[in-house]
């Protein structure tokens, strides 16, 4: 997947060089399923059962030090056996490196909350719940955030029509 030359001039760099993923493989054997650096962006796909351990490790390990949660979001792949991807975008101030952590979830998606690790996850997880119906277990206030409270669908799922 890696292009032969470096990225085109003017585009952004500053992603993890793979060292955090190597640490992850070393300390938590078996959790890493896949690793990718498409366009020099480091993505690590992990087992969803160990997501809480992975995120805690990535935040607390001094060689990883991902102290900043940029984003939490999801992607819906209805044809897959595990139709949801939950995606965490991490950043480390001390290493000036980003890392994307992804995990596949089943048709009734549930995942432990990241709010105790990064309070920033509060509204981001609420939006993800609102739009995709992913339940973040242990979230202090998992309510809809953009849609009305009585809304009965999750608009960013692929089976939600653009016109009603």
């Amino acid at each position: 997947m890696l292009s032969a030359r470096d990225l085109a001039p003017g585009l952004q760099r500053g992603w993890d060089d793979g060292s955090a993923v190597a640490r992850l493989r070393e300390e938590l054997p078996g959790v890493v399923l896949e690793e990718d650096d498409f366009r020099r962006e480091r993505t690590v796909v992990v087992r969803s059962e160990s997501l809480a351990d992975v995120l805690t490790f990535l935040r607390d390990d001094p060689d990883c030090a991902f102290d900043y949660l940029t984003d939490v979001t999801a992607v819906h792949w209805p044809a897959r056996e595990q139709p949801f991807d939950v995606v965490y975008m991490l950043y480390s101030f001390s290493r000036n490196a980003r890392l994307r952590v992804r995990a596949a979830l089943g048709p009734e998606p549930k995942v432990p909350t990241a709010v105790p690790l990064w309070p920033a996850a509060d509204w981001l997880e609420r939006e993800c719940f609102d739009m995709f119906g992913i339940v973040f277990e242990g979230h202090p206030d998992l309510r809809r955030i953009l849609m009305t409270p009585d809304y009965d669908a999750h608009p960013l799922r692929k089976d939600f029509p653009l016109k009603c």
Partner: peptide
């Protein structure tokens, strides 16, 4: 940092961080 704020709000709290410097784009 814990709340994930960015831009002037983050910098006013004493974090000298700006995407233009930390991860430059567009030269």
């Amino acid at each position: 940092i814990a709340l994930g704020v960015s831009g002037p709000v983050l910098r006013a709290s004493g974090v000298e961080w700006d995407v233009r410097k930390a991860q430059p784009y567009l030269d």
